[in-house]
């Protein structure tokens, strides 16, 4: 896993309601992750993040480049991200394998793209351009999807594996997204994970979903569900331990609750570590 310097421990997604408390109490956490765009371009947020980075290994997780769009990533966005990466030298930088813009508009969301050979050519170039600008490899995250291109030539796991081969990027494996896709779209979770080169998986995300009109929606608004914990245990058994993050973005709970979720992941990582040592 040359794509990150994150420790093989559990961390939390750090969001605005907890900035001050984390800096004051400095809870025991393996690392923290923030959304890169919230720290463009300067001012108080950036000053706060410098203080966080003094205490914890830091991961910058982008939500806005839209590397799976037909158009290239936005130049000013990439420039802002580069300044942030240069200023903080984070242990990891990640983005989503998603669509978010055309020549005329942005949809500020993480939309699925067609998994075709033509798309692969374009997306490889976008990933390479990003890694060149940042002068480091990035991790790309699999999505939760609610619609699908009807002419897919491969599945998301195969598409990610090709990107790894072509660009040297790593993979951020979101297990809640995979579970949600399994329920909503019938995605074969085992096939997706089996397609991914294990050494390229540099980070795992866990979160909770909610339910709307018969669909599971990846809202990051709940504790991690039992089925996803089980998938996590199985995945850690299969791949070995990986840096693992608890994400919670809506109805954000107290810091204690969040750290409690991270402690559960940490316990699973340690169980597995025992097995390995024994």
């Amino acid at each position: 896993m040359t794509q990150t310097r994150l420790p093989c421990r559990a961390g939390i997604g750090l969001r605005a309601p907890h900035y001050q408390q984390v800096l004051q109490q400095q809870p025991e956490l393996g690392w923290v992750e923030v959304h890169s765009e919230n720290f463009f371009d300067g001012g108080l947020p950036l000053a706060m993040l410098h203080r966080v980075a003094e205490r914890y290994p830091l991961s910058l997780h982008g939500v806005g480049l839209g590397l799976g769009s037909p158009q290239r990533p936005e130049a000013r966005h990439l420039a802002s991200l580069r300044r942030l990466v240069d200023a903080l030298d984070p242990a990891a930088v990640s983005e989503h394998l998603c669509l978010n813009h055309s020549a005329t508009r942005f949809v500020n969301d993480l939309l699925p793209l067609p998994y075709t050979r033509d798309a692969l050519e374009a997306v490889s170039a976008h990933v390479a351009e990003t890694q060149d600008a940042l002068r480091r490899p990035i991790l790309l995250e699999n999505l939760s999807s609610y619609v699908e291109y009807p002419g897919n030539e491969m599945h998301e796991g195969e598409f990610l594996a090709e990107l790894v081969k072509r660009t040297g990027c790593g993979i951020l494996l979101d297990l809640n997204n995979l579970y949600v896709n399994q329920v909503n779209l019938g995605t074969d979770v085992d096939a997706v994970i089996a397609a991914l080169p294990p050494d390229a998986i540099g980070e795992i995300h866990l979160a909770g979903y909610s339910e709307r009109d018969g669909l599971l929606v990846d809202t990051h608004s709940q504790p991690v569900y039992a089925a996803v914990w089980q998938l996590y245990r199985d995945t850690v058994a299969r791949l070995g331990p990986r840096p693992t993050l608890i994400e919670w973005d809506i109805d954000i709970p107290s810091l204690d609750v969040l750290c409690g979720e991270a402690a559960k992941a940490q316990a699973i990582l340690q169980e597995r570590h025992h097995d390995l040592v024994d």
């Binding site: 037909p70 508009r105 949809v107 969301d109 939309l111 067609p114 291109y149």
Partner: peptide, 16 residues
């Protein structure tokens, strides 16, 4: 089959 670029643009418009 709609091309991947046309499908992507159509999805963005249909949402926004």
């Amino acid at each position: 089959m709609t091309s991947w670029t046309d499908w992507s643009s159509a999805l963005l418009e249909a949402i926004a």
